[in-house]
Structures are given as C-alpha cells and as structure tokens.
Amino acid sequence: MAKILVCDDSAFMRMMLKKVLVDGGHEIVGEAGDGMQAVQLFRQLKPDITTMDITMPKLNGVEAVKLIHKEDSIARIVMVTAIGQQAIINDALEAGASDFLLKPFENTAVLSTIEKLIK
C-alpha cells in the first residue's frame, strides 16, 4: 500500500484516479487542483507517490515536478496527461518524473505503474 497525493485540475479526474487507487488498496493522503497546491501538499504530506497532471493552473505539472525534485531528489511522481506529445512527456521525465500515464487511463495500467514504483 502506498500513500498517494493526487494532483489534477479536473475534480472528475481526481475522483476517477482516487477510486482506482483506493480500490487497488492504496491510501489517498491529499489532492491538489493546481501546481502550487501540489508542491505545498507534497511538502506537508510527504507522500510515497504523487500523480501529477501536466496541464494545471498557477504552475504546470512539469514546473511542479522540478520544484519537488529540488527538495526531494527521490520523489516518485507519475505524470498523468491527455497530451500525447512526446516532447512534453520527455520534459516531465527530465524534470524528475518517474513514469507517466496517458488519459483516458486503464485501471490496470494505473495500478501496475504504482506497483512498479513501490518496489
């Protein structure tokens, strides 16, 4: 079981991810609707894993990952994006993201990605 912070500007997407993760036996320790809130909650909650949308207000997901990785170089962050642009995914991975999921996601893909990062 992992303690997970879910970050997405879409309340519906947060709800979908939370359901998949909780049904998979994980604990949701918090959720953020923008990049600044994601960084603040990461600092407070110290989650095992963070899911991060790329396109968010105030601070995009890639910038949020950069800030989090400055403070915690081993933070495990999964980018969740509907944008199929390889360049943005590469930016996120270079910024320190551990992996990524494309929306719409398969429940099994979400859980296998989380399991891979726990090990």
Rank of each mutant, 00 (worst) to 15 (best):
K3N: 09
D8A: 07
D9L: 14
S10W: 04
F12S: 10
L17D: 11
L17S: 05
K19H: 09
K19G: 10
L21S: 14
L21P: 13
V22R: 15
G25H: 15
E27R: 11
I28Y: 11
V29W: 11
V29F: 10
G30I: 05
D34A: 07
Q37W: 07
A38W: 02
Q40N: 13
R43H: 11
R43M: 07
R43Y: 03
K46I: 08
P47H: 03
P47I: 00
D48F: 06
T50P: 00
T50K: 01
I54C: 11
I54R: 03
P57V: 00
L59F: 07
L59S: 12
A64C: 13
V65Y: 06
V65W: 04
V65H: 03
L67Y: 06
I68A: 04
S73N: 07
I74G: 13
A75W: 01
I77G: 00
V78F: 06
V80S: 08
T81R: 05
A82C: 03
A82G: 11
Q86L: 06
N90S: 03
D91G: 01
D91C: 08
A92L: 01
A92H: 02
E94T: 09
S98R: 12
S98D: 11
D99M: 04
L101F: 11
L102S: 00
P104V: 03
F105I: 06
E106L: 12
T108Y: 07
A109M: 10
A109R: 12
L111V: 14
L111H: 11
T113M: 15
I114Y: 08
K116H: 14
K116Y: 13
L117I: 13
I118K: 14
K119A: 14
